[in-house]
Simulated assay, not measured.
Amino acid sequence: MSPDVLVFVITNAVIATLLEAFPEEICLRGHTWTALRSHYRGAIAAVGTTFLFLLVPGLSTVVQAILTASPDTIRLVPAGQDPVSYPILLTIFGFTLIAARQATGSLWTSIGTHLTFLTVNRISLDGTARDAGWSADLASPDVLLLIPGYLLLAAITYRVLGTPRYRRRLAGSSRSMA
C-alpha cells in the first residue's frame, strides 16, 4: 500500500467517523431505529429510519445555506449528485446499515459498515480529487451500478448471518472446534 493511500485511509477514518458514520449511526440506527422498533414491526421501523436518513443530505444543505447566507444552495441531494440515483443509493445503503445493526445487535457493526462504504467509494471513485493516492478509471458509467450491487450483497449477507438458524449453526461449529 502506498503511503498516500495509507494517509488517506487514516485521515478519512478519523474525519468520516467523527462527522458522518458515528453521529449518523448513533442518531439513526441507534436512537431512531430502536425507538421505532419498540413501537412498530421491524419493516416499518426500517422504512421510517431510512426515510429520515434520506432527509439528512437535504437538511445539511439547509444548514449550509444558513451558515453561508446563500439560500440557492438548498437542495434535496448534495451538489454534484444525481437527484434520482442518489436517493436510490441512499435507500439501499440505509437498509444495509439496518441489516448490519440487526445482524449483530451492535451499533458498531453499522458504524464499521458505514465507514467502509465511505472509504471504498471515496478512494475508488473520487481518489484523484481527494488525493487518496489511488483511484479507479471507470470503463463505463454503468460500472457505478456495482455500488448498489455490493450494498445489496452486504445486506443479504447480514440478513443471513443474523438469522437464528445461522447463529445456532455457528455456535455448534465453534463448540466442536474446542
Rank of each mutant, 00 (worst) to 15 (best):
73 T>M: 14
6 L>V: 13
56 V>W: 09
48 G>E: 05
37 R>H: 09
25 E>I: 02
144 L>T: 04
70 S>Q: 15
57 P>R: 07
5 V>K: 01
74 I>N: 08
136 A>T: 04
4 D>N: 12
161 L>Q: 13
174 S>Q: 08
59 L>E: 06
45 A>L: 01
55 L>M: 12
141 P>T: 00
136 A>D: 04
45 A>V: 01
36 L>S: 04
21 A>W: 07
100 A>P: 10
43 A>D: 13
61 T>C: 01
92 I>R: 07
147 I>H: 06
66 I>R: 07
49 T>L: 06
75 R>K: 13
122 R>N: 15
120 V>I: 15
175 R>K: 07
20 E>V: 12
95 F>I: 10
6 L>H: 05
58 G>L: 07
159 R>V: 14
103 A>P: 03
108 W>H: 10
82 D>F: 00
61 T>E: 09
168 R>F: 01
34 T>K: 10
100 A>Y: 11
4 D>I: 01
141 P>N: 05
11 T>N: 11
11 T>M: 12
156 I>E: 04
45 A>F: 05
73 T>P: 04
1 M>K: 07
75 R>W: 03
117 F>S: 13
27 C>P: 00
62 V>W: 02
146 L>M: 12
68 T>Y: 10
31 H>A: 11
178 A>H: 03
65 A>W: 07
15 I>R: 12
96 T>Y: 08
39 H>K: 14
70 S>G: 12
78 P>H: 05
130 R>A: 12
1 M>R: 09
21 A>G: 03
31 H>T: 10
96 T>F: 11
1 M>S: 13
21 A>Y: 04
169 R>I: 06
143 V>C: 10
145 L>R: 06
128 T>I: 14
136 A>Y: 11
143 V>N: 02
139 A>S: 15
113 T>V: 15
173 S>K: 12
13 A>G: 15
178 A>E: 08
47 V>G: 00
137 D>W: 10
79 A>R: 14
119 T>C: 13
119 T>M: 15
131 D>V: 06
36 L>D: 03
154 A>C: 08
168 R>T: 05
119 T>S: 15
124 S>A: 14
77 V>R: 01
60 S>H: 02
157 T>H: 06
41 R>D: 13
94 G>L: 04
161 L>P: 06
174 S>Y: 00
21 A>P: 01
162 G>C: 10
12 N>M: 14
152 L>E: 03
38 S>M: 02
15 I>L: 12
9 V>T: 14
105 G>M: 08
83 P>Y: 08
51 F>L: 14
135 S>C: 08
89 L>D: 04
155 A>V: 06
27 C>R: 08
114 H>D: 03
4 D>P: 02
22 F>W: 13
6 L>Y: 09
168 R>E: 11
50 T>K: 05
65 A>F: 03
173 S>Y: 12
109 T>R: 11
82 D>W: 04
162 G>N: 09
19 L>S: 10
164 P>Q: 11
146 L>N: 02
169 R>G: 03
144 L>Y: 05
32 T>K: 00
166 Y>R: 12
146 L>R: 02
153 L>D: 01
91 T>M: 05
112 G>V: 11
123 I>F: 11
31 H>P: 00
39 H>M: 08
114 H>M: 04
134 W>C: 03
155 A>W: 05
132 A>C: 08
162 G>D: 10
115 L>T: 10
27 C>I: 13
167 R>W: 00
